[in-house]
Nucleic acid binder design. Structure first.
Length: 735
RNA sequence: GGCCGAUUAGCUCAGUUGGCUAGAGCGCUGCAUUCACAUUGCAGAAGUCGGGGGUUCAAGUCCCUCAUCGGCCACCA
């Protein structure tokens, strides 16, 4: 044994040993209790960051349950991360002086596929570096054919259950990234813009967007506003930059009479509030900005100008006409921006697929409130229910190629198309339909759009498990409440491990991911996707600032593992971290934990060396006198174990680790070994055996937190062909 | 505007049923050390637990209020 624990010489070999001997491989074992976690799939194309290292919580749970004899499954996967990845790829293209528009759909998809494949393996390797006990034989990818098939089936089920519809609605559209987003992906930023007060027919009204004037189809006032009573319901004539036009005056409570002049121009095609007003009053929609971010042919001489330039030009021209009464330069408001590129999003009318969430979210809230799904730490329960409560219909269409193409087909429909509602012109079908049942033609074209990445992610717990069966999974039919027949998953692996035990993620993706998994998971499988949710906090820098590339305060977890060992990094993240709370990461803490790991090693070294001496020189001397020290040590150890199980089972991992840290270092090493040292060196075998027994017990308890050093020492004592994971099960409670 | 979190030693943070002289990591001071470990041991300095009020025999821990910081959410032209 070296006098120092040297992680770099040991960790990789140990991981290979575990993997090769199938310690991470799950199987259906009816004699054991199943315990399963699906790893939140990292982006297939990127390196891991500190946030991913927080999945150590999952490894702790997985290894703990393995040690107490459960049949565990920790299933790894990779996410194609649609927009993220296509965005990275487009930057890559830009460096070569190209853009995505230089390629056709198929070529672009293939190129991105290969680009991702080239980078695949990076994050897998990094997860292994952290010691994660993942079952690699079950690894999944969101672009696997079996997964896509399930995603398609889910979409079809939702469609048949009337929970999917296609409609032309306002969506948040990034004219730079060329795609729409769901409302969850919008990042609101505060901005200071001029607020223009302008003459508008008989009124004066305030707006920050004069360039949308060409798309106005009404003017709105509050129904109780005395100033404008006589105008309500009438049509007014307005002089505009490209000629006179007429709009109706409507009364709507959304208008705040105290803001500005109490009169609002209504531009249904370019503002969410105005769109809502237009629905209430049956107003026409007039789109004047196109998807390229430029004004269109309805804007006369302004056609072709970008929104920002057009705004300045229009404001200027209005001023010259003398129609601008006043400008408030420092008007502060919030605008939606693209979370990818940071540019201002344009609300634009677009025909898209939406999921009706009303019934889904209602059910999801019930599942949480009834305790079918438990949330830890408990304060997240309220947060999650609030998130669900605020859900709007989910726009799942994305205008990018990197993703799962939506299985919807449109046919020519020469005859009746005008009479049909939008969604009735479409066929949702896993395979391309043979023949259109309405017009009899067979000239189908598939929707160009792909699914929002979160649509496939929302299905991850059941999609992964359902596609895990060795034999083809059997299909069972059952009825939905509205008499739609659906297929259900039914294979041994799925049945054994689903619902999964715990979903462990950062609290930052409760909204985008966890809530949707609950909604879609329950809809599809009629069961909860997981019984428990455990949320962890954000890793910040030493000053508590968010880590970000632009700030340059990002710590690479791999670098920490290389310097101090994976164990030290792991426990640095857990030690004295409040569950669910953010943590400030400092290298000094990892150093402190490295020292503890070394202490664990050296306690082993002391015991091991003395055992060697014993067997070499046969200095076996049994002293029947049992000292008080023996009894105290046993008592303290018993107490430690009891506390440990209590903490581990109530998700108080930090406390469990702190307990071992305190016991092993400051009680066991500093006190008891010092007390018994003379006896041990003089050949008291009973003292030595007692120390060994209690040390082994602590190794097992520590193993979920620091798997490498505990296994390394274990093998020093028990031989290279033994594993701390093999021994445990029944003996874990009795050590 | 609403909700949530934070405010404890120089720095970063634990402290979940209220209870013995308030803890850890790192840092700091002094001493020790061929005997498992200097990635060590022993000893020590250091905190009016954000301010104020209240409940209680007893509050960092519960209640009210105020302040500062952070996060999430919200339809205001």
């Amino acid at each position: 044994m070296d006098s120092k624990y040297q992680p770099l010489l040991i960790e990789e070999k140990i991981y290979q040993y575990w993997e090769k001997n199938g310690y991470f491989t799950a199987k259906v074992n009816k004699d054991k209790k199943p315990f399963s976690i699906i790893l939140p799939p990292p982006n297939a194309n990127a390196d891991l960051h500190m946030g991913h290292a927080m999945y150590v919580y999952e490894d702790i749970m997985i290894r703990f349950h393995k040690l107490i004899g459960d049949e565990v499954l920790w299933l790894p996967g990779a996410d194609h991360a649609g927009i993220e990845t296509q965005f990275v790829y487009e930057k890559h293209l830009k460096k070569q002086g190209k853009s995505r528009f230089d390629f056709d759909r198929e070529t672009l998809f293939k190129d991105i596929w290969n680009f991702v494949e080239d980078n695949r393996g990076k994050m897998e390797k990094q997860l292994k570096r952290l010691g994660f006990a993942l079952d690699w034989s079950r690894q999944k990818y969101t672009m696997d054919p079996e997964i896509i098939k399930i995603v398609y089936e889910t979409f079809e089920k939702l469609f048949k259950a009337d929970l999917v519809y296609r409609a032309k609605k306002l969506v948040n559209y990034c004219t730079y990234c060329g795609t729409s987003f769901s409302d969850l992906e919008v990042v609101y930023k505060e901005r200071v813009d001029p607020l223009y007060y302008m003459k508008y027919g008989p009124f004066i009204l305030a707006t920050v967007r004069p360039e949308t004037k060409f798309g106005d189809t009404a003017v709105a006032v509050h129904p109780d506003d005395k100033r404008y009573q006589q105008s309500i319901g009438k049509e007014i004539e307005v002089e505009g930059l490209i000629g006179k036009f007429k709009v109706k005056v409507v009364a709507d409570t959304a208008v705040d009479p105290k803001f500005g002049t109490g009169v609002v121009k209504v531009t249904p095609a370019h503002d969410f509030d105005d769109y809502e007003i237009s629905l209430r009053h049956n107003l026409p929609m007039k789109q004047v900005i196109d998807f390229d971010g430029r004004l269109n042919e309805l804007t006369g001489k302004y056609q072709g100008m970008r929104v920002k330039a057009a705004r300045e030009q229009v404001a200027n021209d209005l001023k010259n006409k003398g129609w601008i009464i006043k400008v408030q330069e420092d008007y502060t408001h919030r605008v939606g921006t693209c979370y990818r590129c940071g540019r201002v999003l344009e609300p634009l009318p677009k025909e898209q697929w939406f999921i009706k969430v009303a019934s889904l979210k209602k059910k999801a809230i019930t599942l949480i409130e009834s305790g079918k799904i438990n949330i830890y730490p408990s304060r997240f329960k309220k947060i999650l229910t609030q998130i669900l409560d605020n859900f709007y219909d989910w726009n799942i269409s994305r205008q990018i190629v990197w993703g799962i193409r939506i299985p919807a087909y449109k046919c020519k429909l020469k005859v009746q198309s005008e009479k049909l509602k939008v969604e009735e012109k479409w066929f949702v079908s896993i395979k391309k339909p043979d023949k259109c049942q309405i017009c009899g033609e067979c000239d189908f074209k598939q929707d160009e759009d792909t699914f929002d990445t979160w649509f496939s992610s929302a299905q991850w717990p059941f999609a992964t498990l359902a596609s895990c069966s060795n034999s083809k999974f059997k299909v069972q039919s059952s009825k939905l409440n509205n008499n739609v027949t659906i297929k259900q998953f039914n294979n041994d692996f799925f049945n054994y491990f689903y619902p999964t035990s715990v979903m462990e993620t950062g609290y930052d993706i409760f909204r985008a991911w966890v809530s949707r998994m609950i909604m879609i998971g329950y809809f599809t499988t009629n069961q909860v996707p997981f019984k428990n949710v455990f949320g962890h906090g954000m890793v910040r820098d030493r000053k508590g600032q968010k880590m970000s590339k632009s700030k340059g305060n990002v710590t690479n977890p791999m670098m920490m593992a290389d310097r101090y060992g994976a164990d030290a990094l792991r426990i640095a993240l857990i030690f004295e971290t409040k569950e669910g709370g953010d943590l400030s990461f400092a290298e000094e803490k990892v150093i402190g934990m490295r020292n503890f790991i070394n202490k664990v090693w050296n306690i082993g070294r002391f015991i091991f060396m003395n055992l060697q001496v014993k067997s070499e020189k046969l200095k076996i001397k049994s002293l029947s006198e049992k000292s008080k020290v023996f009894q105290n040590l046993e008592k303290e150890f018993k107490e430690e174990k009891k506390e440990y199980f209590k903490y581990m089972k109530s998700y108080q991992f930090s406390k469990a680790l702190g307990l071992i840290y305190e016991f092993l270092w400051h009680r066991f090493a500093d006190y008891y070994i010092e007390q018994l040292k003379d006896k041990v060196i003089n050949g008291n075998i009973e003292a030595l055996e007692l120390l060994r027994k209690i040390y082994f017990g602590n190794l097992k308890m520590l193993h979920p937190f620091a798997p490498f050093v505990t296994e390394a020492v274990w093998q020093v004592f028990n031989g290279k062909q033994n594993s701390i994971l093999k021994d445990s099960a029944t003996q874990f409670f009795n050590f």
